[in-house]
């Protein structure tokens, strides 16, 4: 669980899965992203993830009060990879901040593959 708030009265925890979904939805809508790579590689490369699988490809590790969000993506061939990755980072970070404020986080982007489409 990700600890969001701690007061004398009690605490608010949210699940890693919730963070994954928010981050995943933002990531798959990013320009340049054509797919996500599942976090447990046994499932192999997911070509495209539908609505119910927003959290696939997102790995959330909560440690020492810090939420680490690792985003594994497949990009389309032909775009400037660093610019696209930066956009994903910005957009995921913005979406998470928007829906889950006050959570300390870092967003890492892993470009696992490039899809060459003609």
């Amino acid at each position: 669980m990700v600890e969001l708030k701690l007061t004398q009265e009690g605490k608010i925890d949210i699940s890693e899965n919730l963070v994954s979904k928010v981050a995943g939805k933002a990531a798959v809508e990013c320009y340049g992203v054509v797919g996500m790579v599942s976090k447990n590689f046994k499932e192999g490369i997911q070509k495209f993830l539908g609505k119910e699988q927003y959290d696939k490809g997102i790995e959330v590790i909560y440690k020492e009060g810090l939420c680490e969000i690792n985003v594994h993506v497949i990009l389309a061939y032909g775009g400037k990879i660093d610019a696209i990755a930066q956009n994903i980072m910005d957009q995921v970070s913005y979406a998470v901040e928007h829906y889950i404020p006050h959570m300390e986080k870092i967003v890492n982007i892993y470009v696992d593959d490039i899809a060459i489409v003609n």
Binding site: Y31, I84, Q91
Partner: peptide, 18 residues
């Protein structure tokens, strides 16, 4: 355009130019 692509709109613009 590809080399200079910056930001979301810049990346998309570079693809349109492509």
């Amino acid at each position: 355009a590809l080399l200079g692509a910056r930001g979301n709109s810049g990346v998309i613009l570079s693809q349109i130019f492509r």
